[in-house]
Computed example of a mutant assay.
Amino acid sequence: MTKIIGLTGGIGSGKTTVAKMFMANGIPVYIADEEAKKIMDSKEIILQIENVFGAEVVSNKKIDRVKLSKIVFNNPEKLEQLNKIVHPAVQKHFKDWLKNHTTVPFVIKEAAILFETGGHKHCDKVITVVAPQLLRIERVILRDKSDKDSVLHRINNQWSDEKKILLSDFVIENVDLEKTTKQVDDILKVLNKI
């Protein structure tokens, strides 16, 4: 039975960098955020989002992510409505993906809000990636060309690192790439024995 290893971390922690390190070691990695974006482009999901959020969030038969973000990121109820549409579809997609990876001992499921959605309950082990808040803010500003206030708002909408760490089996402090690589190697040694 293929084990599911959850990989999570707050925005700007560098969980995608860590996910790529696992991929480089030949481990199949499912990146939930990327898959969710693809799923949100499907006609069925676009229709559901349009029904809940109105026609103004759809332009050229695609979701206008900027408009939708403005609606959901300042309104926890709206964010929950969106999650109720997208997350079940992502879950189904992951289950189908997993069927193609039955010969490996484990896969990595990378998800930004693994704990917030209860996804950690379906994982055999969980890895949380952490980094100092100032570094996370710098990374996101560089990556998304956003401002400090909007990054802080997104950080505050996610569980704190402390809360995630309590429920995690492994914690990777992602500040220095060389040290992060070593931490990934050490975790792989443990995972290869389970």
Rank of each mutant, 00 (worst) to 15 (best):
R136K: 05
D169H: 09
F94W: 04
Q91C: 10
V104C: 11
T103G: 05
E80P: 03
V175C: 11
I194L: 15
V129L: 08
V130I: 15
P28K: 05
V129W: 06
V58H: 02
R136P: 01
C123Y: 09
M21N: 00
S168L: 00
F94P: 02
K70M: 07
E80D: 14
K61P: 02
K84A: 13
D41C: 11
F170V: 07
V126H: 03
G14L: 13
I108C: 08
K15H: 12
A112R: 04
I4D: 04
L142C: 09
N83Y: 03
K95P: 05
E138V: 06
Q91G: 10
L167I: 00
M21H: 00
H101V: 02
K109F: 15
K121C: 10
D144I: 04
K99Y: 04
F94R: 06
G12D: 01
G9C: 08
E178T: 15
D147M: 03
D161K: 01
D169Y: 00
K3L: 12
K189P: 03
F22H: 07
A89H: 10
T102V: 12
K70E: 13
S150V: 12
P76Q: 06
V29Q: 07
Q158R: 02
I127P: 03
F170C: 09
K148F: 09
F106E: 00
V18P: 13
I45E: 08
H120A: 10
N192K: 15
L82C: 11
T180I: 08
K43S: 14
V86N: 00
A111D: 11
G54L: 14
E173H: 11
S42Y: 11
N74A: 06
D124S: 12
L134F: 09
P76T: 05
M23T: 14
I141T: 03
K99T: 06
I5K: 10
V58R: 02
V57N: 03
M1C: 09
E34P: 05
M40S: 05
D176Q: 06
R143F: 12
T16W: 11
A89C: 10
D41H: 11
G12H: 00
L152T: 01
P132K: 02
K78I: 01
L177V: 14
V90Q: 05
K62Y: 05
A89N: 09
L7E: 02
I39F: 13
V52P: 02
I46Y: 04
